[in-house]
Design a protein around this nucleic acid. Sequence first.
DNA 1: CCAAAAGTGTTGGCATTACACCCATGG
DNA 2: CCATGGGTGTAATGCCAACACTTTTGG
Lengths: 219, 219
Amino acid sequence: MKATNTAGYEAPIGLTADPVVFTLLDGRLCVLLARRLEEPQRGMFSLPGGFVGASEAPSETAERKLREKTGVGSVHLEQLRTYADPLRDPRGWLPTIAYMALVRPETLPEVTPAEREASWHPVDRLPELALDHATIVDDGIWRLHARVGDKVWFVRKALALLPEPFTLRQAQQLYEALRGEVVDAANFRRDMRGTGLLEDTGSQRSEGPGRPGRLYRRV
Amino acid sequence: MKATNTAGYEAPIGLTADPVVFTLLDGRLCVLLARRLEEPQRGMFSLPGGFVGASEAPSETAERKLREKTGVGSVHLEQLRTYADPLRDPRGWLPTIAYMALVRPETLPEVTPAEREASWHPVDRLPELALDHATIVDDGIWRLHARVGDKVWFVRKALALLPEPFTLRQAQQLYEALRGEVVDAANFRRDMRGTGLLEDTGSQRSEGPGRPGRLYRRV
DNA sequence: CCAAAAGTGTTGGCATTACACCCATGG
DNA sequence: CCATGGGTGTAATGCCAACACTTTTGG
């Protein structure tokens, strides 16, 4: 496919936006994928993005396509980077702007639109992805690891994944899954308190064996 | 202007790449701008970018346009982010991928191509810029400040701006200009040594009054 | 021409903070 | 069995003072 503008010069055949949406499911970092109903590579899994409209901001496109293809709505998207290699898509010259988001797993409805099989996939066990989407997901994971390293960012953005109130143990498991490395419990606890962004509810909860954990809430 | 692809759908009228090139001139952080010879906003200063060819990687475009418009060549470009608001360019739907680079001031030839007036402009005293280029430059400065905060990045990438050998005083002035904040001389010196990436040449150099400074080289 | 002053590079020390690691305790 | 809190040693960092070496100034 080709495209030309009214001045006769070559133009991209379109512009796409691809959201890389992460969540924590069963303690594992997962990414949201949808099966392609269209060519190329129909039937293969890919990021739930699509074409940007001519009077639309790309971030709106990412959010809209996400809703249409998976049912996930109202997320905060951070721009990741743009992939514009002319050979990245067999259809022609088609750049894509990738975005990143972090949502709660239940944001994905049980009944997903169409036959897309929109679903969560652990990042350490991804299926084969269409186009260069595997690269995009990798970059997203890398960015996520970096963001989570900032404790304040973690409390403000990532901790919203947990249902309130939550224990610090839950928060730590979330941190470790998102960061990709284990941390010392005492240090983690100290850092969390240090942010001043958590509030002790006073109550406790017992999950499984061992001493019950204090319950916290974000302020 | 409009553009459509062979499937009949609307497409961007093109894709541009804009390099944000920084240097240190007279101790001040400067950005490379060129006067526009084309519409829109002819005669106004803007980033020295241009249209991406249909079989070209955008980073190559940024490098090529930089060379054509300013004479600056062979730089390492880091992708900044993409600006794709449909209203950002009066010509039509025209996304741009912004890149960032850091070069020595003498990389800009004395005789610049055409009547472009390619020249360095202190970031704290920029002229009015075309389109949304002021925003792009701001984002570039922000990213630069963050990058420089990493001492190893600074030594490896930024310190290449100084002619070798250099004194630690020079390095510190570079750091402060790029970082946008002053630092303690003793700490800066300790950090520089700590990287293990600097080599003491043994000789000294006296610039103005005061004790002469030791001369260093990157390894 | 010499001595003092001023200016800058260099080094070290000290206090504070950040952080990793371990252990005792409580539910 | 595990959450919680405390404690300790080490590294990183910020701050400050002393000293070294040079140019400049003034008699």
